[in-house]
Design a protein around this nucleic acid. Structure first.
Lengths: 344, 344
DNA sequence: CTTTAGCACTCTGAACTTTAGAGTGCTAAA
DNA sequence: TTTAGCACTCTAAAGTTCAGAGTGCTAAAG
């Protein structure tokens, strides 16, 4: 459908989009003429622009203003016109410098730092979903008795996660009893993803074990709880104030709604999860987003991995008028670096 | 000095403060007359108000506007006039309901939740400093070998904190070697606050131990690192968007500066630490605050404890025009509940 | 058939003006 | 000491003006 655009129209559409992204001002025919070598008059451009408007790629805020890209216009730009001239040198350097400045050991630190880098390199708000524990596979479980009735449970996954939780036991278990339970569980659960460790599976194991050892109730509660807790995953934000620099957010009310959104972690999680796709950078423009609240924004998402296992999503959120080329480039680099940092 | 205010002036000052807190509009003499039983005319009130202005308790935004309280005025109000009529019933119920809705096990959860409650009950932004690990006393240390060269170090404090960290050892240590180190450390460190475990102390121990056991370098690095990491303590925010509801923040630029501040955790930490005082609720109005960025705000702080040990600070930040009575009441209740939740 | 010059027309946003209302300070009388 | 009364001040909102940017259309030129 849209592909039927003449070369000239494409050219013009690109110019309008690029200019509007840069200046946030509606683009008039004169402006297009100026930033174009092909020697056409403004009148001709005007006609073409009127056509592009009819086709839905451009809109006029009001008669006698320049044109701005419609959502469709952005879409076409992203799909067909955008130059992903990887000026990698620039960005690459910028990111790799800040990313590797200090070797960061803790996963959380790496993520927080990535969010910062991402937001400052794009001048937008960045969202990074913390590693999704539940997608990892169970490797082993350990129990470290602390005091009489308290123990530390340690879960280790194939992605190198080490999750631990202190639990209170109703009854005291002897070390050998504990050992039995633990080795039984290790055997049964090995290799399952945390997602697969459902309540029903746990119940099944419980029945099985009960016959042999009676005291285990608590041990199971423990396991269940330490898993349940991971259901809500943290989302890390960077550069939330960047939206204040965007002229589309000069209205206090919009700001309020946006910041409000940022405070609702579960929602952010859903937004990220909905739009991400493994191995691809996804661009969702305006109403392409499920979530009502970001229908005037664009969300660009990518995914990151630990040991080749996709484990989380990173996103950049900003007005539809966003420097798509830059954002996509930056995100590519960042995800690469992130994968690298996390897998070591 | 200020105490020389006549009863009538106090009355008037109170009325002005209360009214301005409620409406955010400068208060004129007519308004004062209306909300006052004593049968005085507006002219009299005007004279009194002019006096109060001379004394520095009130200011006029411009001639021919009503008066608004100066910083000094607020100060006087808080110190002498404020009615702390604990309408505890109301607040108490509101807080205790939301605080105890579900028994929350993890400390972090409790804190995050408290921040929410605090902000929504006051309609301001709340800041809660995460528990200051370093003020706790060392109880014991454990090491759980995971794989060949990885171990999990567990630190337990007298306040019931359990802090753990995975570390990579350069060389493999035999269980008995580890055991020796650990028990030596436990003996030496028992009862010291984490603050007291300084680098120099560590070095001293290191020298001492070296004679007996050579491989310990890593074990110490480990200890040092797990402590160092705790130096930056998290600050949890609640209701950051609430400042947007305050008319004093209708200017986008102010909002920007404020939100910017919120993104700088170390600064927030400093702000909280500077102004808090053990066992007392502290009110810092305007320029009474050290920090430049909140010179137009009031910060109310309190502290919370675990097992009778002061371990962190909670704060409410808002414009100087803030409902001091309510905020202070709410904070009292909240701190009580927090103490209770954390000490169980 | 396409392009272009020219022109009348539209719309906005910034700058200025106007005006009602709220509030003051002062004076003189109670 | 208090108060009524009045002239004066200042603001914030509503209205007015005006230049500038941009358009669409028409008619001529390529």
């Amino acid at each position: 459908m849209g592909t039927t655009l003449s070369e000239r129209k494409k050219q013009i559409l690109r110019t309008v989009v690029v200019s509007y992204i840069k200046t946030a001002e509606p683009v008039g025919s004169r402006t297009v003429v100026r930033s174009q070598r092909m020697g056409l008059s403004s009148a001709t451009i005007r006609n073409e622009m009127a056509d592009l408007e009819d086709m839905g790629y451009l809109v006029q805020p009001h008669t006698s203003a320049g044109r701005i890209p419609s959502q469709l216009g952005y879409r076409y730009y992203v799909d067909n016109l955008m130059a992903l001239d990887d000026m990698s040198g620039d960005i690459e350097r910028e990111i790799s410098i800040t990313m590797s400045r200090e070797k960061m050991r803790e996963i959380e630190q790496i993520i927080v730092h990535s969010a910062r880098v991402l937001s400052s390199a794009t001048n937008q708000t960045s969202l990074i979903m913390g590693p999704q524990f539940k997608k990892s596979a169970f490797r082993q479980m350990r129990i470290l008795p602390l005091e009489e009735k308290r123990s530390l449970v340690v879960l280790i996954t194939d992605t190198g996660f080490i999750k631990n939780k202190v639990i209170d036991l109703q009854q005291q278990l002897s070390p050998s009893e504990l050992q039995q339970v633990v080795s039984y569980l290790n055997q049964k659960l090995y290799g399952l993803t945390i997602d697969q460790v459902t309540t029903s599976l746990i119940n099944e194991l419980k029945r099985d074990l009960f016959r042999r050892l009676e005291i285990l109730e608590q041990a199971f509660i423990l396991l269940e709880e330490s898993l349940k807790e991971e259901k809500q995953i943290r989302v890390f934000l960077g550069g939330t104030t960047n939206i204040l620099n965007q002229p589309e957010f000069k209205d206090v009310d919009k700001i309020r709604r946006m910041l409000n959104l940022f405070e609702q972690e579960p929602l952010l999680f859903k937004i990220l999860e909905d739009s991400s796709s493994e191995d691809n950078i996804v661009v969702r423009i305006g109403t392409e987003n499920e979530c009502e609240d970001i229908r005037e924004c664009t969300l660009v998402t990518g995914t990151y991995k630990i040991h080749d296992k996709t484990i989380g999503t990173v996103g950049v959120l900003g007005p539809t008028r966003m420097d798509y080329g830059r954002v996509i480039n930056v995100m590519r680099r960042l995800v690469d670096h992130l994968n690298e940092s996390l897998s070591s």
